[in-house]
Design a protein around this nucleic acid. Structure first.
Lengths: 114, 114
DNA sequence: AATATATATGAATATATGAACATATGAATG
DNA sequence: CATTCATATGTTCATATATTCATATATATT
């Protein structure tokens, strides 16, 4: 695949989106995905999972929030396929399911920090 | 500045955010910025402005929406400093105000397309 | 089987948001 | 200065969203 070695951009995709406004299907998909990132709790959950997988209780404790609130947001993130879960006994361990997640957040950090 | 030549990432920023979850101030800023991108109309407006500056009426016509709806969203985008405006007689011309905007959307396109 | 622990889920509530509508403002032109 | 054209804004309404609370489910332990 034609890919920039440094930044991992797919050059074909970049070429494709250069000029005209794409159809509503794509822009809606984009907006919906941005929405998933558009919540403080979800951003913090994702960040927590950058290092390593964690179980629900530990995420809740680390972020000082209720188990229920975290569980609800985990569901949202899972449905968006940004994270995945695995059962291990009583625990459910969650981890990042997509290489892009970190890059997407990094890009936004650069934007808000600069 | 220590910057990747290909992808324009600021390496210091990337280093900084590597490990722990940052304070709420940053994550809230991030989430709020993601929220601005998290709307179909705003994504389409930004895309429309990638090529060139445009006036409100032309944006509304191109996206087949009311002048009022577009104007409201332009305000949101302007407050987030993603676009800027200039008056020219009766018209207000809007244009992208930040180099990151395109990269941020591109990154998300890559995510949803792959 | 009964209990404890971890997680998920449904309902309710409060808040945020986007668009429509009506109207106001600003600038050019007769 | 009245009118027209372009844009901005305030209000209202319907919908979406995040959290809390109560409860259900799943797994392990005794």
């Amino acid at each position: 695949m034609d890919m920039c070695q440094s930044c991992q951009y797919n050059m074909q995709v970049i070429e494709k989106i250069k000029n005209q406004v794409p159809d509503n299907e794509l822009t809606t998909k984009l907006a919906d995905m941005f929405k998933v990132f558009g919540d403080n709790t979800r951003i913090r959950i994702l960040w927590t999972l950058f290092d390593k997988e964690m179980c629900v209780y530990d995420i809740a404790e680390k972020l000082d929030m209720s188990q229920s609130a975290i569980s609800h947001q985990l569901k949202t993130l899972r449905q968006a396929r940004l994270i995945k879960s695995r059962r291990d006994g009583k625990n459910a361990f969650y981890s990042i399911d997509d290489d892009h997640v970190k890059k997407i957040i990094e890009q936004m950090v650069i934007h808000v920090e600069e």
